[in-house]
Amino acid sequence: MISVKTTVNGEERSADVEDRTLLVSYLREHLRLTGTHIGCDTSQCGACVVHVNGKAVKSCTMLAAQAEGCNITTVEGLADGDTLHPVQAAFREYHGLQCGFCTPGMIMSAVDLIRRIPDLDEPTIRQELEGNLCRCTGYQNIVKAIKSAAEQMAS
């Protein structure tokens, strides 16, 4: 067992976990932040994407221990009180979600993508979503939502 201290969504958190605990389990089971999802076991679907020190990572492919001392943002920490993050708002406005399961990972990936490449066109967005699977939307409205959010955030 090890004690893992992190800052999650601005709050200092700590939990005693087994060494083998993945970051996603630390968040979901120990901190009960269940917005981060697990959709596969081969590190491909991206439902578990969170930000660690400002960068999008797959929380199913990182040990909680590796996140010791890190600043973590999950989908629960994105909105500012009742004010949605522009990416969250755009997903709703453009119907970028259906069942909602891939959505937290999609949104966290999109926020990271806009940070890295503010000026986004459709082919770039599609390519950059390589690490996120969605089975419902056919991606079209996700792409629209990200493009719109990027434009809004740039202005």
Partner: peptide
């Protein structure tokens, strides 16, 4: 816009595995 979206985009959905 969908009524159900707010819980999904803020990570407040309740899927079976979210239940303890």
């Amino acid at each position: 816009q969908r009524k159900e979206d707010k819980r999904f985009i803020t990570g407040q959905g309740q899927y079976t595995d979210d239940i303890a």
